[in-house]
């Protein structure tokens, strides 16, 4: 077994941004401590509040990774709604607020063993598999230079100084392209044309494009699922 740490690290030339790394480290430390407190504290309400720390930390990491929309959703849905639900749950089940030794099972060693093994295994696999891979410095998903280069390579259209209308026409004139590819090219073409500060020049725009175009069906299915869960929760919890 050899650990392939050095072979083919992606984006090896991407510059290291010290401020971001420091930010990551601080947030990650908070998250790990928070997570440990969630599963060890003797007070359910405290556990819920520590969970807030973890969730907020995750939202901050999303911002670091240029996923602003997911970060905002995380704050709104998780911290705004789910934590409140948890607090209601704690309140309605009259769990003892203070010093509840019973919150953890007496035989927790097995769980700890499994968790440590799992963590070790995952770390090994990740270090082995991804080694020194670096994230690209430009995290705007749709508009990084390689996306433009890919587009030009795949379609043979030069993009420099072209208007959106021209690009769309040229994509539509392509032959031998499947419908899915064509719609992907069209999206890229529009983004390239909007490259200088248009509304699509952000990952939020790209997310909305993806949800309401290529992932429309799963999106609708999710809404059905939420309705079903809503009705299910009412039916289960109602008194009778």
């Amino acid at each position: 077994m050899t650990i392939a740490l050095t072979i083919g690290a992606a984006n090896a030339d991407a510059p290291i941004n010290v401020a971001r790394n420091v930010g990551f480290g601080v947030i990650a430390a908070f998250m790990v401590v928070g997570a440990l407190r969630v599963v060890t504290t003797r007070n359910v309400v405290h556990a819920a509040l520590w969970l807030v720390v973890v969730l907020a930390g995750a939202a901050a990491q999303f911002v670091l990774l240029a996923a602003e929309f997911v970060a905002i959703t995380q704050v709104l849905v998780y911290i705004g709604a789910i934590i409140v639900l948890f607090l209601f749950g704690v309140m309605l089940t009259k769990a003892p607020i203070e010093g509840d030794a019973q919150l953890t099972r007496t035989r927790w060693f097995g769980g700890a063993l499994v968790a440590v093994l799992l963590c070790g295994l995952l770390s090994f696999a990740l270090l082995d598999g991804f080694g020194e891979d670096r994230l690209p410095s430009d995290t705007r998903l749709t508009l990084r230079p390689s996306a433009v280069a890919d587009f030009e390579g795949a379609t043979g259209i030069t993009t420099e100084g072209r208007s959106e209308t021209e690009l769309v026409e040229e994509v539509n004139a392509l032959e031998g392209v499947s419908g899915a590819d064509r719609s992907r090219f069209l999206t890229t073409a529009r983004n390239i044309a909007d490259r200088d500060g248009g509304p699509l020049d952000s990952n939020t725009g790209a997310v909305s494009d993806a949800i309401f175009a290529s992932y429309l069906v799963p999106f609708e299915v999710t809404s059905v699922l939420l309705t079903a869960a809503l009705i299910g929760a009412i039916v289960i919890a109602r008194k009778e």
Binding site: V38, V39, V44, A47, F86, G89, V90, T93, A95, D100, Q102, L103, T104, R105, W108, G110, G111, A112, V114, A115
Partner: peptide, 8 residues
């Protein structure tokens, strides 16, 4: 695995 409380 280790928590006894349903909410936890």
């Amino acid at each position: 695995i280790a928590r006894r409380n349903g909410v936890a």
